[in-house]
Write a protein that binds this DNA or RNA. Structure first.
Lengths: 203, 203
DNA sequence: ACTGTAATACGAGACGGTCCGTCTCGTCTA
DNA sequence: TAGACGAGACGGACCGTCTCGTATTACAGT
């Protein structure tokens, strides 16, 4: 008794169909938003049968996930490491400003928002996303902060996970909940306030 | 030509039906989660007709919103102001620990999560929520921080909106995205780190 | 290398199911 | 007597599964 009902043959997979499905998912997510995004519409737009989608992806969210991975695989791959010029504040501003720019780009932002919402609804997708993208990204951030901590630019008692939450969390919130405009100035203010703290500078 | 098709007569409203619908919504949200929460199920559970729901609420999210307001209207009403003992750090820890406790209470947390998700999908509900709950709450937080700033416990150059984001944002993120356990210790660490900043204490 | 055959992914869409939001009913109440 | 109420029928949108006939692929055996 196998748990798998069917194991589709990856060697026979139609690459053109895969690409047109992912592209259709991205386009539709950008055009109609998450609430009106349906697998039927994706299949119709892609000129694909619904079964082709269900054969290769377990859920709508998984399609979106792969679609965004395809979009991210641009010219160069692997973000590897965060910049380290020795100036922590400048480096963080560079990174967060880049994030702001990306989140203001509808081509990325709308499908990403759709994925974020789907993740809230689907624990299996959440686990997959956390393992394949979120946790690796967090480790990259943690690594940059750890170097800064060793260099004495971050206090020795600071929990680096809390530090990551403080730096990237506010941006994520503003973006997902559309709480306010996402600007480079806001990113800078977050970095400065997180680094210096709320208390006035000690004399 | 009126925009309103019908204006139901509030004076004739059945209070028992209203309460049983809101209670059913809360119970179902807690039992099956947002993904499986349907208006049909709420009506069935409440022993109400679907039309009764559609007559008084514009959307599923609006029902949840009212249900949570009903739940919050406990013994005493009006949270009014955040505590001010003069010790900003202690006061913030008190408040955030209370928030943590509330968010760990399934009776509040599950319907709240359902509402949070619905808000992401429904701009009209988002606007309503922001106006009636989120912005007033933010103003209360801002007011407490402003007092601290005047008392010299927060730097004069600090943007209080950014400060609110730094203090409450990480908690909200952990809760909504289930990124990690929501503990009093985490709340304390956020307060300490946000107040002191990431940089080592100046000598 | 060439070609025949079996396997299987593919596009298309039918199917029963759930839930949507609207619409009648007949009843009950203010 | 007007209007809210419980109940549920209705058409429509998608869901996820299934069954077609077609097209493509892997793997023979010569």
């Amino acid at each position: 008794m196998t748990t798998q009902r069917k194991a589709p043959d990856a060697a026979r997979r139609n690459e053109a169909a895969r690409r047109s499905i992912l592209t259709a998912a991205l386009d539709l997510a950008g055009e109609v938003g998450y609430a009106r995004l349906s697998i039927e519409a994706i299949a119709a737009r892609a000129g694909a049968g619904k079964q082709t989608i269900y054969r290769w992806w377990p859920s709508k969210g998984a399609v979106l996930f792969d679609a965004l991975l395809m979009l991210a695989e641009g010219p160069t791959d692997e973000p590897a490491d965060l910049p380290d010029t020795g100036d922590l504040e400048a480096d963080l501003k560079t990174v967060l400003r880049a994030t702001v720019a990306e989140l203001n780009e509808p081509r990325y932002s709308e499908p990403m928002r759709a994925l974020a919402i789907e993740i809230l609804l689907d624990p299996a997708l959440a686990a997959d996303f956390a393992e394949r993208l979120d946790e690796p990204m967090r480790e990259i951030k943690r690594r940059r902060l750890r170097k800064a901590q060793r260099a004495g630019q971050i206090g020795p008692g600071v929990d680096l996970d809390v530090a990551v939450d403080l730096l990237w969390g506010p941006l994520k919130n503003r973006w997902l909940h559309r709480e306010g405009p996402l600007t480079a100035e806001y990113a800078d203010a977050v970095v400065e306030t997180a680094l210096d703290g709320l208390r006035p500078a000690a004399e």
